[in-house]
Design a protein around this nucleic acid. Structure first.
Lengths: 216, 216
DNA sequence: TTATACTAGTGAACACTGTTCATATGGTCA
DNA sequence: TGACCATATGAACAGTGTTCACTAGTATAA
């Protein structure tokens, strides 16, 4: 009498097919150039059918972003290196690798502004906070081991390293690097520079965020 | 007999009006949500008229990106600080400020992937190369003054600092920071960390870009 | 001054988009 | 067998970027 169960399984299978088709199309042609009709055609359903699985095209987008975080998180969990600093390195390097292996996931998770709702819901994604805590916790233990100058805040280290590696990932993803430029080497060096700088100690500077506006 | 001149002036005025209207609408509603019809309505012309000034919506986009580079470049020219390191700081800080003051320009110039052609034409933009040369030239003199470890490449310094500040700018622009997070402070610290790290000297590491893939 | 040439701008249309809804289909259960 | 209900559909709506035959109006040449 597993009729309900089977029906539910079938529903999930179709939803899965929609997401797979959408992801493949997004990667191949970009979100903007993928229409519901194209997704429908790929899974051999009518366009209208999709709307009984997802309320809108944006929601397909969001569902994929959610999956992206899940993938990145499970990736991060298997982090283990002898040197604790190496483990930090590896953690952020993995984010960069992720941006290469899953460019479309990365784009929706960290870059895309074309989906209106993601900006709103961003902080609601439990994944973001979880990822942050995972890394920040490890960084804290490293700080406690005295591998960073006294008074260093784990949260600040996390944000700075994230921003650094993020910059390279986005430049690469958005094709804003010279063709000759070796993105991997740049990623390594940028991460290394930030890490070295943090360990050397950066001036805590002016407490208030200095407003040296350029006025142009 | 300045008929041709007057006609040309009028053409430019309308083109200007289209760009202004498009920019305002892009900032207010985002590229995706702005239609040619909306732009046309704003300047009180028919939608078709726009196509005798720009071949496509994407070309309006590109024209604005070009303007963005011009603005950023003229901004950068008035760079002058006593300390040569401060001048480097100021240069990249200006890019960050630019991302705040002209978010839509910045987005088209550095992060947008929704316009298919920009990825192709990116390297053709003389502006990009010019901006790079401007900064790299100054960095070279600083290196010559011995303020960086011997053997440091100006181009690498430029790329690393650019990537670092770019990361913060994008995180802020795309609203991927916690609401409490002070973006300016993060920008300052990230830039400082990279600069400190570069001056301390980062290992030139494995020559070939190490392929430490995470395989997930 | 008249006739020609040219230009800018238009309205209507084409082929597409995301989305909605009444309708039909076919399996489930009493 | 007959009632039910989830699923999928075709057709349509309102909107999109873009094209094109056409018109009104101005500039040039005869």
């Amino acid at each position: 009498m597993g009729v309900k169960e089977r029906q539910e399984r079938e529903r999930e299978a179709v939803a899965r097919a929609i997401l797979d088709a959408a992801r493949e199309l997004f990667v191949a042609e970009g979100y903007r150039n993928v229409s519901i009709r194209k997704i429908a055609e790929k899974i051999e359903y009518s366009p209208a059918a999709i709307y009984s699985y997802f309320p809108s095209k944006d929601d397909i987008f969001l569902a994929l972003a959610e999956e992206g975080f899940r993938i990145l998180l499970t990736c991060n969990e298997e982090a283990s290196a002898a040197d604790p600093i190496d483990r930090i390195r590896a953690g952020f390097w993995r984010l960069y690798e992720f941006s290469k292996e899953h460019p479309e996931y990365f784009a929706l998770m960290f870059v895309d502004r074309s989906v209106p709702s993601i900006s709103q819901d961003w902080q609601r994604f439990g994944f973001v906070r979880e990822m942050k805590h995972q890394m920040a916790a490890h960084i804290q233990t490293v700080i406690n081991d005295g591998l960073f100058p006294p008074g260093t805040e784990a949260d600040a280290v996390f944000q700075i390293l994230l921003a650094s590696i993020h910059g390279v990932a986005v430049l690469r993803l958005c094709e804003r690097l010279a063709p000759a430029q070796n993105a991997d080497a740049l990623a390594r060096d940028t991460l290394e520079a930030a890490l070295t700088g943090l360990r050397a100690g950066i001036p805590r500077a002016l407490q208030t965020a200095s407003s040296q506006s350029s006025d142009c």
